[in-house]
Amino acid sequence: MIAYAARRILGSIPLLLVITIISYALMGLSPGGPAAILGQSARGMTPIQREHLIALLGLNRPWYVQYFYWLQNLVLHGSLGYSYVDSRPVIAKILGKLPVTLELIGLSTLLTLAIAIPTGVYAAVKRGRAFDEIVTTLAFVAYGMPVFWLGILLIDVFAVHLRWFPLSGISSLGQSHNLLDRLDHLVLPVVTLSTVSFASWMRYQRSATIEVLGAPFVRTAHAKGLTNWTVIVKHTLRNALLPTITLLGLSLPSLIGGAYFIEYVFSLPGMGYLGVTSVFARDYPTVMGITLISAVLVVAGNLLADIAYAAVDPRIRYD
């Protein structure tokens, strides 16, 4: 197992290289250039002064040369460089934003799974019946909602009118260390993200369960006279969880990208927010840092999914 994990990690290095090269090339070839790094001062500078500054930052070199220096800095010094916007180390900026995003994604994945797995199993058992139809339609409706639209509607109903939850942000003024306050602020964002991802998880679980229900060993179990629920819980659920676990690793990149909309609508200072503002500000080092860290998370997510797979299903061996 350890050897397998090590091989997988080594095997992912070329993948990471490809990802970072593509990102760097995209930025290097873009028009507009890094003018935005100057923020509001860009307006008052003359083009000649801007050229001078761009040269100072080494941004007038071809992108592949810049990429080389970036990689060298990363490999030799373990440094992701400094942000162009505020001259802070990129790693510090990202670490400052990561908790919010991880909390958001983590909590919403838990909530989604907690609802989607039982619902999916039950819909599979009641396949073709009213419950199945209704849940399927509801899932499609939830799936079709632009996530920012849903967020705005929830804010309007639960924060503006009912006043059950705070409007936005991650904490109340002066309450930045209050855990309960933080959770209170996360309820609506988590529910929003869970709602839109519910559909896929539920349908996944449902189809996986349907397949397992038709499998010979389940029929055998039934024949042995085990009750319906025992069969479902003991045999079906266990086997049907497999594809769901795989999906967990695969859905990570989209969750990170998607967290942006939630973070934007609910004004949460997270990594998605940082990422998109950095793209618009042409803050290359920060964009690269976020791309790299997201990619590492994705690779790690896939790896964990595979290992979990093995843990759930002893038939799978790695060699």
Binding site: I19, I22, P31, G257, V287, T291
Partner: peptide, 24 residues
């Protein structure tokens, strides 16, 4: 297929924003 993996490992939306913002 490794290329596909790489493409899928980007936060897809992030990639679209990047391309669109950058190609303007």
């Amino acid at each position: 297929m490794r290329t596909v993996d790489a493409m899928l490992s980007f936060p897809s939306f992030f990639l679209i924003i990047t391309v669109e913002a950058l190609t303007n």
